[in-house]
């Protein structure tokens, strides 16, 4: 029993790490623009399908799809950004409906181009086991986790030190004051969308290498990402990492101790708990939700 729990915690930690990479883009955009981009999961999905195409059509290693994914997804992200900025009335609510619609478009585009079949990588190297004492995982899972932690760390340091990072923080805490300091919020916002695109590209390619993909996945990924974003609260990068691990571990424990069908329930209950009981998430600055 103890072994099972230990293994579940380990698997949860790994998948939580990869969730963090997916969620970070959403959290960043949410932090700068207060827009929850419901098409974010579809960005990841798009990158994953590009990896699949690169592997199946050109017979390359799917990791080589990264540059193409980054370009395609960033263009998509920029388009989404431009559309969101066109909203003038009630942007907070309308952006939710708009990005929901854009997500439906992207999902169906994927469905239209690649059909509904399930795909996974045929590169055997990824699926080989890595055994660490009593703990077991696949190479790809570990790789995803490490990539994720490294990218989160880079982003964290960068946001902390760079001019852009300061601008992001200024814009997300007080837009008007930031303008007075000579920061153009539009540029900051566009950059955060582009970073979200880059993060989504890495996540998508890694996702394809580590598990199976299908068109309906985008929606599920978005939901996980916003659960984590809400858990983390506004403007906390370590919060995203911890929230993601929390979600991953609770899911893994639910699967081991209860049933795999209840996995999704855990996340939903966690989300409702934080929404209703913790007004600022686990780590966030104060921000009114009521």
């Amino acid at each position: 029993m103890f072994d099972l729990i230990l293994q579940a915690t380990y698997s949860g930690l790994l998948s939580g790490g990869s969730y963090a990479l997916i969620a970070l883009g959403l959290a960043l955009v949410f932090g700068t623009m207060r827009v929850i981009n419901l098409a974010h999961g579809e960005f990841v999905l798009l990158a994953a399908y590009i990896a699949y195409t690169v592997e199946s059509q050109m017979d390359w290693n799917p990791l080589l799809a990264l540059p193409i994914s980054v370009v395609v997804v960033c263009i998509t992200a920029a388009i989404v950004y431009l559309l969101v900025t066109r909203l003038d009335k009630n942007r907070e609510m309308n952006s939710l409906i708009l990005t929901f619609g854009l997500g439906v478009i992207l999902t169906n585009l994927v469905l239209f181009i690649w059909k509904a079949d399930i795909h996974s990588t045929s590169v055997g190297w990824f699926q080989e086991a890595v055994v660490l004492g009593p703990l077991y995982s696949m190479r790809s899972e570990l790789l995803f986790f490490i990539t994720s932690v490294v990218m989160v760390a880079i982003l964290w340091v960068w946001l902390d030190k760079s001019w852009y990072g300061r601008a992001v923080r200024a814009v997300s805490s007080n837009r008007d004051a930031a303008k007075l300091m000579g920061i153009n919020p539009h540029v900051t916002e566009l950059i955060s969308f582009l970073i979200a695109g880059i993060l989504a590209s890495f996540s998508g390619v890694a996702l394809y290498c580590a598990s199976v993909i299908q068109p309906a996945l985008g929606n599920a990924l978005t939901i996980k990402a916003f659960i984590i974003t809400i858990l983390a609260g506004i403007g906390s990068i370590p919060g995203v990492l911890i929230g993601a691990v929390l979600l991953g571990v609770s899911e893994a424990l639910t699967i081991t101790l209860l049933s795999s069908a209840l996995q999704e329930l855990t996340g939903m209950l966690l989300l409702l708990f934080v929404l209703l009981a913790l007004p600022n998430g686990l780590f966030g600055r104060a921000g009114r939700r009521g």
Partner: peptide, 28 residues
């Protein structure tokens, strides 16, 4: 009802979570 005191987008997403929960319960 507890979600009623949330502002627009948060209400929308909370209700989405409820809908998912109902579906899982129907499955389980």
């Amino acid at each position: 009802l507890p979600a009623l005191r949330l502002r627009g987008p948060y209400f929308a997403l909370a209700v989405l979570a409820y809908a998912n929960i109902f579906k899982i319960l129907a499955m389980e």
